[in-house]
Amino acid sequence: MRSCLVVLMVVAVCLVSPAVGAEPVGVGAAWPAISLRGPEIESQRSYLGLEADGPFVLTDVSADIVIVEIFSMYCPHCQREAPKVNQLYQLLLDTPQWRERIKLIGIGVGNSPMEVDFFKDTYGVPFPLFPDGDFAIHKALGEPRTPYFMGIRLGPGGEPRIVYAKLGEFEDPARFVEEIMAMAELK
């Protein structure tokens, strides 16, 4: 019995720790139960369909798919990619069949709120960005390099599941969304 407990402890520690050679979560994996602080900007709360202004989890977002960009203010590729990710956001807004169904957020790994704000201001990022100053989210996601894009299917009823994952830049925003929708088996 005691051995079983110890084994369970080992498994638990391994699951939450940044094990050497840890792999980023990928397609088919459940999205971890990560709590994000609510956006301070009312328009961004409205965009995500959040009713309250406190912390939220991904399933609180009003969408079928949430695209999550894992980025860092300190990452040259993320800096270069920022205008194109802004285009992706605008494309989602401008496309009636996607506007309400697909939402986009970013998580700045190792970035303080100020660093995330600095990135946001520098590149005029219009969609919600969230700080992960202590790398807690980064660790829960298996420590992906940046930028790392994920498409997370939110419904219906089941746990949020990763249906798309991509390390590095995407070429064409429209094709990128279509790939995610295809992987999610949505039209």
Partner: peptide, 10 residues
């Protein structure tokens, strides 16, 4: 174990 610290793809 050491965290990867958000290493850039660069």
């Amino acid at each position: 174990a050491a965290p990867a610290l958000g290493e850039s793809l660069a």
